[in-house]
Write a protein that binds this DNA or RNA. Sequence first.
DNA 1: CACAAACTAAACTAACCAGTTTAGTTTGTG
DNA 2: CACAAACTAAACTGGTTAGTTTAGTTTGTG
Lengths: 207, 207
Amino acid sequence: MEKPLSPRSAAKRAAMLDAAQRCFLESGYASTSVDEVATRAGVSKATIYAHFASKDDLFGAIICRRCDDQAEGLSSLTLPDSSEARTILTAVAQRLMALFLAPEVMGIYRIVIAEAPRHPELAKTWYEAGPLRGKQRLCEVFDDMKRRGMLDFVDTRRAVDAFISMLRGECFHRVMIDLPPNPHFTVEATIETAVDFALKAFAPSQG
Amino acid sequence: MEKPLSPRSAAKRAAMLDAAQRCFLESGYASTSVDEVATRAGVSKATIYAHFASKDDLFGAIICRRCDDQAEGLSSLTLPDSSEARTILTAVAQRLMALFLAPEVMGIYRIVIAEAPRHPELAKTWYEAGPLRGKQRLCEVFDDMKRRGMLDFVDTRRAVDAFISMLRGECFHRVMIDLPPNPHFTVEATIETAVDFALKAFAPSQG
DNA sequence: CACAAACTAAACTAACCAGTTTAGTTTGTG
DNA sequence: CACAAACTAAACTGGTTAGTTTAGTTTGTG
């Protein structure tokens, strides 16, 4: 199923995808012109249309590449082997926050939200490869902590969802809509608050 | 400072804003043409440019009108006068979820996120008139509950932020990116989970 | 009814864009 | 060196767009 792409072609293809991603994240889907992508990629427009059927197809290829990257990054995610719930939750929260706030991830997120009404299949692909897999992975971690008596909750998926959601608070929101950071809602404070609340809400009953 | 707009003009203006909002929410900012707004508003293009300096200005007017509406809606928000923390939190959560998921609110939210990099002033205006005011209002509610011994927390703003964020979980997310609803994450389940966790995390110490 | 403000349709400018085509050049391979 | 695949610049098609202008019409008000 894989095409045996010549190294020259593969390099051009990567240059096109890089340029296109930068353009789309900067200007949005509709305002990005294929001519500009070609110029920024150092490639002729005809070459773009030799690799991609349409502007839409090029857009799709970017989302898919991002998904592949995400899937790889997730599987190589390691956590400290601690018996302290706080230690593990904090490590998880730090990794998630770093991921959420990475400019590239944030840019893709913004554009997926913006284009979801016009490109629902892409939104679905992105969601399943990214957020959904991340939550599944976190469910395993939470289940493991429950088994070890470190946490307690009724429904794993809802607990994980609540924990992740607390990380996407004011701090995240401000970055997302390009507002200056609020010193009361730093990354560190967000992590600490979320972990504190989770430890209380998921505290195993004594006995 | 207010213009004494003739009733005829005011009606036309409202029609233009309504049509523009529908267009922008449907197609996004860049893909909406002023000609189409004019047609949908039943107005000539020249009239649009007599009322608004540019397409950008028209866009700004929509966000501002939305902000005014939101500010009005917030001040008239009433809560049950209960002594049960669960009752009050559930009522708050229900009102917030209904607000978040309302198609118009969701549409504006999507477009503000999408256009934030290109229209940071508008994002700021929207944020301060909407989410920020809402959080301030909720801070008062939380402080009041703390005073009455119904809840306990160290930092009001962080507690409120965490509570609101839990409402913006998988259910909200799916609506935002046009994915079919997940029966495990209904609106009711989201509210119940958030309230349950908040009650545990903010439980006043016995004594 | 007269007058001015607000409106209308329609044409126009000057630019932009997705996608194709053409004719010629570079590049790896046998 | 010969050949085919991949590439290039540039022109071109058919269409769209923001914003302006023009000449004429509707509308409320004195």
